[in-house]
């Protein structure tokens, strides 16, 4: 996966630390010129579209056209409907549960790779193994759960034939369970990669020192490894939380259109030609996600840790 490659190589490049500090302390014309292409690209492809979305969110729509105006109608409707609050709550619920599960699995996998596999060759081999599912499209990986979990699917027929259950389990598919299962399946790697990366940078002598000082295994995990892995956990968290909060297709397919998150609210609006209303929802979602990330970043100063 690309983020992993980028992260690994950035680690190597970041190693000669004094040099990058020196670069930062000499802001001059050349420096400004060097950032301007990136600034330009970001301005055109990131800032401008977001500004446009913000502007459109104040417009009004008719059946077949959108009318430039300055109206709070879209926000009025959004904040005036109890459904909005429920949907936002649902979005946070998905984000929280998926975060907890991907963190547990991701941390365990990364820990195993980093501390239990001795040779670097095997570490890399097993790490690549983790990325294999990413060679197919995430839609396909998601949809393949549907026949597996269905009423007459493989999971149910297996459980029935083992005599574990008497009737097919209905909640396996088209339920919150299915949505969260798909999310965890899709996004755990985004947790594994950064955590593994930070774990690899932990000085092994630190662990030896802790053991020499009499720390038990759990104590080392809790007092040494976990604090040192915080930046990786935080990066993984940002990946997972933003992906889950912005998703709409997984929720639509795995819940059989029965559950909603904010992404679905927006996609429904777009499908029904309600662009201004969709923009308003998008702006509120954007603000919510930025706020969430802002709060997360209060816990760890990622820039300092990197």
């Amino acid at each position: 996966m690309n983020p992993s490659a980028a992260r690994l190589s950035s680690r190597r490049r970041a190693a000669p630390f004094p040099e990058s500090v020196a670069m930062q302390s000499r802001p001059n014309l050349a420096g400004w010129l060097m950032v301007s292409p990136l600034a330009l690209v970001l301005a055109v492809f990131l800032v401008a579209p977001i500004v446009l979305i913000a502007v459109v969110s104040f417009w009004t729509a008719t059946e077949f056209s959108i009318v430039p105006a300055f109206s709070w109608e879209n926000y009025d409707f959004l904040f005036g409907s109890s459904v909005t609050y429920r949907v936002f709550l649902n979005t946070f619920k998905y984000a929280a549960i998926v975060w907890a599960l991907t963190f547990l699995i991701g941390f365990t996998v990364a820990y195993y790779l980093a501390f239990h596999i001795r040779t670097q060759t095997w570490q890399i081999a097993l790490f690549l193994l983790c990325t294999i599912p990413f060679w197919t499209s995430n839609i396909i990986r998601m949809i393949s759960w549907i026949p597996f979990l269905g009423r007459n699917g493989i999971a149910n027929s297996a459980l029935l034939s083992w005599g574990v259950i008497d009737a097919p389990l209905e909640w396996l598919l088209f339920s919150d369970f299915a949505v969260i299962l798909a999310f965890v399946h899709l996004y755990t790697l985004f947790m594994v990669v950064p955590i593994f990366n930070t774990m690899m940078r932990i000085d092994k002598p630190l662990i030896e020192a802790a053991r020499d000082a009499g720390a038990s295994g759990p104590q080392i995990l809790w007092n040494v490894i976990l604090p040192l892995t915080k930046p990786g956990i935080m990066i993984g968290t940002i990946f997972v939380v933003t992906l889950v909060m912005g998703d709409f297709i997984t929720v639509r397919f795995m819940s059989g259109s029965q559950s909603a998150n904010v992404g679905r609210l927006i996609s429904n609006d777009i499908a029904l030609l309600q662009y201004p209303s969709a923009s308003a929802t998008a702006i509120v979602l954007l603000a919510t996600v930025l706020l969430t990330i802002g709060i997360l970043l209060r816990f760890v100063d990622i820039r300092k840790e990197l």
């Binding site: 059946e63 409707f77 429904n268 209303s277």
Partner: peptide, 13 residues
């Protein structure tokens, strides 16, 4: 338009 919004709420409910 009203129906569409209400429909959206039904799907999200």
């Amino acid at each position: 338009q009203y129906m569409v919004r209400k429909w959206n709420e039904f799907i999200a409910a």
